[in-house]
Design a protein around this nucleic acid. Sequence first.
DNA 1: GCTGTCAATGCGAGGG
DNA 2: CCCTCGCATTGACAGC
Length: 363
Amino acid sequence: MALWHCLRLCHRLISLRSTFSSKLKYHEEGWFAMAGRRAYGGSSNMTVMFQNEGIPASQQSLEALLISTSAPSFHGPSALVNFEDVRGGKQPDKSFFRPLEQEDTGDEDLDECFHPPEKKRRLTAEQVQFLERNFELENKLEPERKIHLARDLGLQPRQVAIWFQNRRARWKTKQLEKDYEALKASYNSLKADYDNLHKEKEKLKTEVLSLTDKMLLKEKELGNSETSDCKELSGTPPQKFISNPASREKTSRVTIVNKQEDITSANSDVFDSESPHYTDAGHSSLLEPADSTHVFELDQSDLSQDEEDNLNKTLFPPAYNFYNFPKLEDGLYLDPPANSYPPANSYPPANSCLNGVAESIFI
DNA sequence: GCTGTCAATGCGAGGG
DNA sequence: CCCTCGCATTGACAGC
């Protein structure tokens, strides 16, 4: 009797197939087909009966699915099909066709049949192992392979497809973690190199300044003796570079800043526009230089031209404009006072051998 | 009770 | 239009 009810409902479902075509897709592959197996114990009776009833050609896909559910080669408890607990525990027997065991109540039965199973069941270890092996061979699932696997595992093709889908998602997550770790290691290595180079650069900078001071002192001594000579000989003013260690240091710093701007742009080449830019707080530190203050002495990139001009006027009044300093001879200027600090972009071409030394360090 | 895992669902996008 | 995929999400369940 229950069998007859089921058959009748199946036919009604088939007649409603066009209405529910899109949504029925899952059920045809999934629990509806399983229900057939559940109701008929996985035998081929269903197939024979359907065939005897003469199913129209348009319904052959459903028939094929019902056929495919028979005689699975994997006879272990399959998820959602057999409600025995796959871990050996007791589970209530929740048949999809439970309503059919009661009296036929017409459309209510149909509605009950459309309700998906309430409980989910995990795949057995054997099923997962089998799927894993297949996933290793090829992580994409062609329709034929899907049917074949489903048959071998005693699962529904839809379940196999879902398993592969979820497996690909897990694989992708793992891959992302791996990629992240590799990038992190690479970054740490680069950062260590950068830190070493930075330390070396600082050391060389100090060395240059100390050598510069020594040379300036010598130059001054020479200048004094020449000045006294000139005074004695002709009384003409001195033609040599007038300097003192303090202002010289400032001048050298300007050169350093100038060159550091180049370094900064070099750094921006390293972290170029094609590199990932982490803007959120969690990642922003990843690409920052170890000590940005060493790289950006004066960041004017955000200033407009007017603002920049005003800033220059404030910091470097016209009286101390580098080009206003008395020119002694080609390429030699009266050194600005120690408190003046010409902007890097107004710094004249450095002909001084000392500047050349300082510059060569930062090229 | 909380949390992580996993099977399954729903939806939009893209290809044939 | 159908199918498959990726992705976000849900719900069941196990381990703590």
